[in-house]
Design a protein around this nucleic acid. Structure first.
Ligand code: SF4
Ligand code: SF4
Lengths: 153, 153
DNA sequence: GTATTTTAAGATAAAAGAGTCTCAATAATA
DNA sequence: TATTATTGAGACTCTTTTATCTTAAAATAC
């Protein structure tokens, strides 16, 4: 799998937050309910994003988490790096230790191209962009629900 | 990680076999020594490739495994599918159940492009091609050794 | 036919990933 | 101040992946 489960959950939650962006703190419990992700597990993942400065959190009643910057400024790669680390972009197909351009394996050239394609996609895509697409086309962030269901209250 | 460890080992072993291709059976023990992979673990992986018809095996003295077809006819995708299955090419970024074109998530269009790039790379690359590149440029299949070291005896 | 070399198959163990549970810390509110 | 709502942090469990170990089956050679 390209991304870990934690990373996928982090992405989905970030999209959720970007879609609600009014500066309000959203309780993690709301998100875990709506996105059908275990509350405690999601909490841990969002703690990582908070630690990395992608989210900010607030404790107590009316607390929750929100994006620290505008969704237009958050690229998917930011979330992937925060949760899964850089392995996806540094390791590769044959996964030999200490590999890279100076000491490559036979797959390196081809793999490097593919890897760059992944990197570019993650780097050029912002949360806001996906949220806009999701809202106009009523796409889904969860098994059943489209954007309309997720945000109807 | 894109590919499982098993899959990476399977790829490396297949490249090794393609590089020696003279129709001879190569004992798995040789490969596990040369490629620095646990013998028993590699054995299991190669059993999968044998079951999928990519390799053929022969028991007893002078036994071992070899490619069933010529290395020019084996694409990387064959090995990936045999070991990791089709998930890489069917699942995706947000990993929602039952997803696809008819019921996509907001990432689908972008992800589909990237996924196709991966697919195409794996589908268009043959073992022989990589072996040729590895031999002419003395690239490596293992931590230290280039092709020259691997096959000097 | 017996010993030897090899793959096949399955049980077991260790490590990593995914998920759950408990309790502490913080903030609001009554 | 006591209660409640919330995130933070850590211990714990479950599952999957990775790796090892043991025994069986097949083929060869003597
Ligand atoms: S040389 Fe390149 S493709 Fe090969 S293992 Fe290293 S990074 Fe991956
Ligand atoms: S809709 Fe496409 S990108 Fe989204 S989860 Fe499904 S296959 Fe992946």
């Amino acid at each position: 799998m390209l991304l870990s489960k934690s990373c996928v959950y982090g992405l989905r939650a970030s999209l959720y937050l970007a879609a609600r962006e009014q500066g309000e703190f959203i309780p993690i419990r709301n998100m875990s309910d709506k996105l059908e992700i275990s509350f405690h597990f999601l909490t841990k993942i969002l703690q990582q994003l908070t630690a990395e400065g992608i989210l900010e959190s607030f404790k107590g009643p009316n607390g929750g988490v929100r994006l620290k910057k505008s969704g237009t400024e958050v690229q998917l790669i930011d979330i992937v790096l925060a949760i899964d680390g850089p392995q996806l972009l540094t390791e590769c197909a044959l996964g030999l230790p200490g590999c890279g351009v100076k000491n490559p394996c036979p797959l390196h050239d081809k793999w490097a191209e593919t890897r760059d394609a992944i990197h570019e996609m993650l780097e050029k895509t912002t949360l806001t962009e996906l949220v806009h697409k999701g809202k106009t086309e009523n796409l889904r962030l969860t098994t059943d629900g489209g954007f309309d269901i997720l945000f109807d209250n």
